[in-house]
Design a binder for these strands. Structure first.
Lengths: 235, 235
DNA sequence: TACGTCCGACGTACGTTGTACGTACCGTGT
DNA sequence: ACACGGTACGTACAACGTACGTCGGACGTA
């Protein structure tokens, strides 16, 4: 054909790779939304034939999983072991929120798809480490991790999928107030201004504070020195 | 044609309706999974031509929204105003969890799609009512509602989308332990048994307790008598 | 009874999607 | 020089969402 490139030559084209495919998909999603993602579009993005993708990705679901994996792998899990459990936990959960801001339109995919790679376990490992270091037993550490994860996921999900009807309330109060039965929704109507106000950051921190203060108040053994074997903590 | 039925006669066929379409979709999803839902399948389910659906539902997205709406509308929001704020809040959040058990395979849809109908606001109204009755100001009530919602959504999302890798850890420990770098994931490996153990109920209640106890400890005005106008609480 | 109007069920058809399959080519080991 | 494994590619197909036109029964009015 007219190709001046031989297939495998990186000199003219950067070599097709699972990583490049995933990044292209992410770029596409961020620019045009998750609905715009198709194998054909990704291929076009990379200047490649559609079926070439399948040499590196078994199917579209796997590509989506790759997207999710790449995003959570982008979490910056810095940690300062000298700080308190509460502070460290806060930093950890906020890290998730930070990537959520970095890849806003990928978040539905991240939240929806399960991640089957070590990258997905890094935040879990970190959470368990914090809890363990704080003196919680294994069982409790796992539950703490799950509670933190649930809140991180849920807060993000709620924010992106914010019920539109509340926006209607704000946008056209006259119309929407009328559509809402005042007998059934007195509080929603009365609190419409607060409901319409978007301050995701404060909302997020409010719930996070609640959860972490409650965790901090949980009964536990004294926090142990850092050099002790963490694995022996669970009974 | 061979129709012994006249189109609009309910005597032979129960009359095509948005409600029947939505219920058929839900049935399909619960039986075969969300991936199996297509307009054609739904039509077949109802013994109806595909395009007939579009007389009652503008498009597939609207159908999905209908599914989500129907599910949350199925929440049984019983309430006992004589009980404490904490108890009432617990009951409310558990109600969401109950429908999640009733329509497990619809949950991804419910979580993903925003609900643009009064039905979606009923739980919100309830949460605001509880918080208001407990003496929280409007701003705080809204934040409390959001925190509860975030946890409810997140806990459910986490449970359904439970990271499969943890299952691998349980299923084939030998293999998976080997695949996991012990230096990077010491706690995950050490706590593998606890991580693999599925006790969603206890996990859910653990986090819910944390959150609600923290809410209960929040500073607030004394709870007001029930006959007072709730709408005046917010500044 | 006859007729005009409207609505809902339906068939056809188009563009887009994911991907199974076969082919052609490259670089590499022998 | 030659066979081989991997990768890029084109073709092809089934299934999808849905725009559009048609058609026949229900119903108000005469």
């Amino acid at each position: 054909m007219e190709h001046d490139v031989t297939s495998g030559t990186p000199a003219t084209r950067p070599a097709l790779t699972r990583g490049r495919i995933v990044r292209a998909a992410i770029g596409l999603i961020e620019r045009e939304g998750a609905g715009a993602l198709s194998m054909r579009r990704v291929a076009a993005e990379l200047g490649v034939a559609v079926m070439s993708l399948y040499n590196h990705v078994p199917n579209k679901a796997a590509l989506l999983e790759g997207v999710a994996e790449h995003v959570v792998a982008g979490m910056e899990l810095e940690d300062d072991p000298s700080r308190s459990f509460a502070d460290r936990a806060r930093v950890l959960v906020r890290a998730f929120r930070t990537v959520a801001h970095e890849y806003p339109r990928c978040m539905t995919i991240v939240l929806t798809h399960e991640i089957d790679s070590p990258a997905g376990l890094r935040p879990a490992e970190r959470a368990l480490a914090l809890a363990d270091a704080a003196g919680f037993d294994g069982e409790t550490s796992v539950r703490i991790m799950r509670a933190l994860l649930a809140y991180a996921l849920g807060a993000q999900l709620r924010e992106t999928g914010a019920v539109r009807m509340l926006d209607h309330l704000a946008a056209a109060p006259a119309d929407s107030y009328g559509r809402l039965d005042p007998d059934e929704f007195p509080h929603v109507i009365a609190l419409a201004p607060q409901l319409a106000r978007h301050d995701p950051e404060t909302d997020f921190e409010f719930g996070l504070d609640l959860l972490i203060r409650a965790l901090d108040a949980l009964p536990r053994a004294a926090s142990r020195p850092l050099d002790e074997d963490p694995g022996t903590a669970q009974g």
